[in-house]
Amino acid sequence: MEGFTPVLSTIGGALIGLAAIGLLFANGRIAGISGITAGILRPRKNDTQWRVLFVAGLLLGALLIRWVHPEAMAIRIDVSNAAVLLGGFLVGIGTRIGNGCTSGHGVCGVGRLAPRSLVASAVFFSLAVLTSWLIRHVAGGL
């Protein structure tokens, strides 16, 4: 999976889009992973079961991928454990303050041409590119 994978990435992207459309069609929800996960952490009445089911499906899908396409689980992270923890915390708190992540804003919101999601996506993509550049080319690692 290293290097440019035009066919797999286009097919995979289409499946992500179809999954998000499927969720909208089935129960009218936005397939935003950060929002779905955060909703499980702070359960509200009649709003938890579908989230748990979606995440359960996601995890079973992940196991299937590990089985049929193990390259997708050959994960390499090039920063320190402290950076992993800080990065994870920023992703968690940032997606809650900004009400969404790559799926909710990036796929569903951009797909609906929603102004808030277009702005959010422009902001998080820009900051991700800038941060990655600062860490890997200016600081020489983190």
Partner: peptide, 21 residues
């Protein structure tokens, strides 16, 4: 809903997005 979650993960895995590198 379960199937949507499953398909979402397949898409992520096939597209290569599960790999931070």
């Amino acid at each position: 809903v379960f199937a949507a979650g499953l398909l979402f993960a397949l898409g992520l895995g096939i597209s290569g997005m599960t790999l931070p590198q």
